[in-house]
Design a protein around this nucleic acid. Structure first.
Length: 571
RNA sequence: CGGGGCGUAGCGCAGCCUGGUAGCGCACCUGCCUUGGGCGCAGGGGGUCGCAGGUUCAAAUCCUGCCGCCCCGACCA
């Protein structure tokens, strides 16, 4: 393509609304333009790049036997009502009415639709397994779209769904996807970590996320510095650091003492001269309307995700100040597990198991107990409820854990029977009995891959995308295209690229060289062949964007050289 | 939904406090010039100052309401 004919609206300055790097560069480099909060138009460059990503995804999905569909984005409410998600998804689901007043939704994911196809058509065990996927636009009415194209209300996703006869089949499907995803992200040139994940509102058991480390990420990932343990913070477990002080020995009796104005764990630690790890934190949560007391080591944080999963409830929140006074006769800051006025479940984090003679609130304002021993002075139900904290060690090998922010680019789930059951998908088995197929669900954020690549590979001059997903593989830049010798050489190289199947752009603009160089750097074309002064010696400059290494090559050798580079992946 | 910020030319901003002719840089158009890192000179086009109401002789500027966008939090298959 000839640059002079292309619409590549690069900006010299950073639009004020862009905060994260990928957003800034995608705007500046003329890839995207924003239409509304969380809604973007993808222009030529973004579209070319996304098509390449899609193609990689498509090839790897087809390689594991995936069959590509193109599904309805406009869904009747009934399908979502059947699975129960019409209510469950709440405000996140875009809803609309047609002219007759019928309820419709814009699909945010396609479990229901895929299942509705399957139940109408799959009749025999002989037809299983199936892997169906789609690459399409999805809609989600995000409460807060942000970070450019990282969290939007309209986005591109590949999602796949599998139908199997039994758990073993699902396991096979899961592993196939796991492998395919690794190949996909490798081919896209991303550096990523596979983590254990929480399966969320999707339901299901096993789940892994594919995460790309980035400051722009919204998730926190915990990873062992020694072994292969890695998990989303929501799910991560660890060995707690040792308490800051040894517990007093002996079978001591709880003893109330006056703690005027000591509200927080930090206050108490100071007041009692004992570290936060010798205090017990009492949190009051309301789970589907019922109060639950959660006990944690003073320096630990509650993981609401874990608590939610443990309790298996739909609504979980912290208790209001008023409720606390009503139930405990004291306010937050003096609460504890002893002498509860109201009957409620008392849970404790595993880190409290075996501890002795700790400090806890007395359920009387400005009073606490010392010498409280869980399991003796009160009987909690123990669960893993705390969030992994800095200083904790690996649950597998005991080595140090690291924690970093990451962007989720892929997520695979074992769904189980949630949709096949609720929507009545059955096939006949070998023995003539009905079988409910078991499902899996596997997503990849196509536009997130692009954003991640930008986050991962950029410098002060712009993007440095991997050649596999860059909008063009190379740019041919004659310093002065009006000069006939340069023009001939440029046209020749461009023709050679076309012949070799290389996706090149010819910068034939009547611009000063500086402008062309800046633009090529900004939009991140991996290789640049510059035709200038040295042409008189039959030489051109070959530049690698990522490393900024430049070499002189013969005009005739330029394209073979480029070809060689393209077969050799960066990194 | 709570907290904060912003809205003036395509982009980045000044002007608002203290009301009176709407400005600067970049981009854009024309001509000349220049051609290895966003050249130079000259001329030029482009604005319902987010919207609506109010105060005033007069509102970008003061007041009220609304809308939009961004950030933090809540939320997040």
């Amino acid at each position: 393509m000839r640059w002079s004919k292309l619409f590549i609206p690069t900006l010299r300055e950073i639009p004020a609304e862009a905060e994260v790097v990928s957003h800034q560069l995608l705007l500046r480099a003329g890839y995207v333009r924003q239409l509304a909060a969380g809604v973007y138009n993808y222009l030529l460059l973004a579209q070319r790049s996304l098509k390449k990503i899609e193609q990689i995804v498509r090839e790897e999905m087809n390689a594991i036997g995936g069959q590509e569909f193109f599904l309805a984005a406009l869904n009747p409410a009934e399908v979502w009502q059947e699975s129960g998600r019409w209510e469950l998804m709440g405000e996140n689901l875009f809803r609309l009415k047609d002219r007759f007043g019928r309820d419709l939704a814009l699909a945010m994911t396609h479990e229901e639709i895929m299942t509705s196809i399957a139940r109408g058509e799959l009749r025999s065990y002989k037809q299983l397994p199936q892997i169906w996927y789609q690459i399409q636009t999805k809609f989600r009415d995000e409460p807060r779209p942000k970070s450019g194209i990282l969290r939007t209300r309209q986005f591109l996703m590949k999602d796949a769904y599998t139908f199997d006869l039994d758990a073993e089949g699902l396991d096979t499907a899961y592993k196939l996807h796991y492998g395919a995803y690794c190949k996909i992200f490798d081919r896209c040139g991303l550096k990523y970590t596979v983590v254990e994940a929480h399966s969320g509102a999707m339901g299901g058991s096993q789940s892994n996320e594919f995460m790309v480390a980035s400051e722009a990420g919204e998730d926190l990932v915990v990873r062992c510095t020694n072994c292969d343990y890695a998990a989303n913070l929501e799910k991560a477990v660890s060995k707690a650091s040792a308490p800051g002080a040894a517990d007093p020995e002996g079978d001591l009796t709880p003893e109330e003492f006056h703690t005027p104005g000591q509200k927080t764990i930090a206050d108490l630690a100071k007041f009692t001269q004992l570290p936060e790890s010798s205090q017990m934190k009492s949190l009051v949560m309301v789970a589907d309307g019922a109060p639950v007391l959660v006990m944690l080591r003073g320096d630990h944080q509650l993981s609401e995700t874990k608590l939610n999963e443990t309790l298996g409830v739909t609504e979980l929140r912290a208790a209001h100040a008023q409720e606390i006074v009503e139930w405990f006769g004291a306010s937050a800051g003096s609460l504890g597990p002893l002498g509860l006025k109201k009957k409620m479940r008392v849970l404790a984090d595993l880190a409290l198991q075996g501890r002795r003679n700790l400090i806890a609130g007395a359920n009387r304002d400005d009073y606490h107990f010392r010498h409280v021993t869980p399991g003796e002075d009160f009987e909690p139900e123990y669960f893993d409820l705390r969030q992994v904290a800095a200083g904790d060690t690996c649950p597998k090998c005991g080595a140090a854990l690291e924690m970093f922010k990451a962007i989720e680019v892929g997520h695979i789930f074992k769904l189980g029977y949630k949709y096949s059951e609720s929507m009545g998908l059955r096939v006949l088995g070998e023995d003539g009995r009905e079988i409910t197929p078991i499902m899996g669900s596997y997503g990849i954020g196509i536009d997130r891959i692009l954003a991640c690549a930008v986050e991962l590979y950029h410098d002060k001059d712009g993007m440095a995308l991997p050649p596999q997903i860059a909008p063009f593989q190379a740019v041919i830049t004659p310093v002065n295209y009006a000069e006939s010798l340069q023009r001939e050489a440029a046209d020749l190289l461009y023709a050679e690229c076309a012949q070799a199947g290389i996706d090149a752009v010819l910068d034939d603009r009547d611009e000063r060289p500086g402008v062309k160089f800046k633009d090529a750097d900004l939009i991140g074309i991996p290789y640049r062949i510059t035709i200038g002064k040295k042409l008189s010696q039959g030489k051109v400059e070959f530049l690698e964007r990522r490393t900024r290494t430049s070499e002189e090559v013969l005009l005739a050798g330029a394209i073979p050289h480029l070809k060689k580079k393209l077969w050799m992946p960066l990194l």
